[in-house]
């Protein structure tokens, strides 16, 4: 059940430049792929920001976010004991029961955030994880215990393989591919998987205002018309998405 409540910051850690892991007091156990609308109390901006669940364990809700604009900049200043306004968990999340057979998880940049909690819910032996970054990798270690094989790719070549993560995915080895990251990366995955016997689930990012399906600000074009990223999504079966 979705709840609106004030939560306390248990911990905030900058995992690398501009990337923060925020641990909050959680209530409801979220599904992997769900998100929360997060607003710093007395923040100097208006709307809460949609941030996906990075992990949830024993009442502790972990969020991973990149400082991007005014809202996340303000969130980055949160310290232990500060309070935030939370609304969630929201969205459909990943349906773990639908992820049959061999699963390939492909994350790009901060898009890796919702994928750790998902990987934890799957059988590690049946999961391969691909993580792509621009310059600097982060949180790749956390994924190690949760997959059969973890492949790290950086565009800079600083760590792991050099290039784009999509160049390293073994497309024909998976029954299911789950992806979250830059649209350009997800589009590449959608194209690669077209006509193949693989189901692709993509978690999309959109600007949001209400987060609950009322304002219609975050719609995504699908084969069945506009769907709300915050309500019917953020996870979509790629077959239903209409790319621009």
């Amino acid at each position: 059940m979705t709840q609106s409540y004030q939560s306390t910051v248990l911990k905030q850690k900058e995992v690398c430049e501009g990337i923060f892991e925020l641990t909050l007091e959680g209530r409801e156990v979220p599904k992997p792929g769900q998100f929360y609308m997060v607003k710093r109390d007395h923040g100097d901006y208006l709307l809460p920001r949609p941030i996906s669940v990075y992990d949830f364990c024993e009442g502790k809700l972990k969020l991973l976010y990149r400082v991007e604009g005014k809202g996340t900049k303000s969130m980055a200043r949160l310290k232990e004991g500060d309070t935030v306004q939370l609304l969630g968990p929201l969205g459909n999340g990943f349906d773990v029961d639908q992820m049959k057979g061999k699963v390939g998880i492909v994350g790009g940049g901060i898009g890796i955030a919702p994928l750790l909690y998902l990987a934890k819910k799957l059988e590690p032996k049946s999961v391969d994880i691909y993580l792509g970054y621009k310059e600097q990798d982060y949180c790749a270690d956390s994924f190690q215990a949760n997959g059969n094989k973890v492949t790290v790719v950086t565009e800079s070549g600083k760590l792991g393989f050099k290039g784009f993560v999509t160049d390293f995915v073994k497309w024909d080895q998976y029954d299911t591919i789950v992806t979250c990251g830059p649209e350009i990366m997800m589009e590449k995955i959608l194209r690669e998987s077209q006509g193949k016997e693989v189901t692709v689930f993509a978690s999309l990012e959109r600007r949001m205002a209400c987060g609950v399906g009322a304002c219609l600000g975050c719609v995504v074009k699908t084969t069945t018309g506009n769907q709300r990223a915050c309500k019917e999504g953020p996870v979509f079966n790629a077959d239903h998405l209409i790319l621009d």
Partner: peptide, 16 residues
Amino acid sequence: RLWETPMGLMNSIGLQ
């Protein structure tokens, strides 16, 4: 469809 401004919100939903 959405754009935040200082203490405001712009929208262009288009009456969906």
